[in-house]
Simulated scan of single mutants.
Amino acid sequence: METKSRIIETATALFQLKGYKGVGLNELLRECKITKGSLYHHFPNGKEELLIACLHSLNESITAQIEGIFAHYPTTLEATEAMIDMLIGQYEKTGTIIGYTVSSMVSEMATLSAPVRTACAELYYNTQAIYSKKLMAEGFTESSAQSIAVSLSALVEGGMMLCLAQKSSEPLRTVSDVLPKLLRN
Rank of each mutant, 00 (worst) to 15 (best):
I7L: 02
V106D: 03
M86N: 08
A11W: 12
E78L: 07
G24V: 13
Q146L: 12
L14K: 01
L123F: 07
L164M: 10
V150G: 03
S153T: 09
C32S: 11
L172A: 01
C54V: 02
K181Q: 03
Q146N: 14
C120W: 06
S153G: 09
V150Q: 06
S57E: 12
M1C: 03
Y131F: 15
Q16Y: 03
P171Y: 10
Y73D: 02
H72S: 15
A114E: 14
S104H: 09
E27I: 13
I69M: 03
N185A: 11
S151G: 13
F70S: 07
G89Y: 00
T63W: 00
C163H: 00
E157T: 15
N45F: 06
G158Q: 06
S113V: 11
Q65F: 13
S143N: 15
A79I: 10
E78F: 05
E67F: 08
G46T: 13
A121I: 12
K133V: 10
K21D: 14
G68T: 08
E27D: 12
N185Q: 12
I66M: 06
A11H: 11
E170V: 15
T3W: 01
A114V: 15
K134F: 00
H42P: 04
S132R: 05
L164V: 11
E108D: 05
L164C: 05
L28R: 10
A154E: 07
S151L: 15
Q128R: 15
T3S: 11
E2R: 09
L17C: 03
A13Q: 09
S169K: 01
A71I: 04
V150W: 05
R184S: 10
P180D: 04
E170G: 04
G46C: 14
M136A: 12
V116Q: 05
V102Q: 06
M161K: 07
G46Y: 01
M136H: 08
A149L: 08
T76P: 06
T111S: 14
L14W: 08
Q166R: 14
T111A: 15
P171W: 10
T75P: 05
E108T: 05
G139A: 11
N126T: 14
I97R: 00
L155F: 01
I84A: 02
Q16G: 08
P171N: 11
A53W: 04
P115G: 05
Q128W: 02
M109L: 14
A82W: 00
S168R: 09
Q166A: 10
M136G: 09
E49R: 10
Q90A: 05
G89W: 00
S104Q: 11
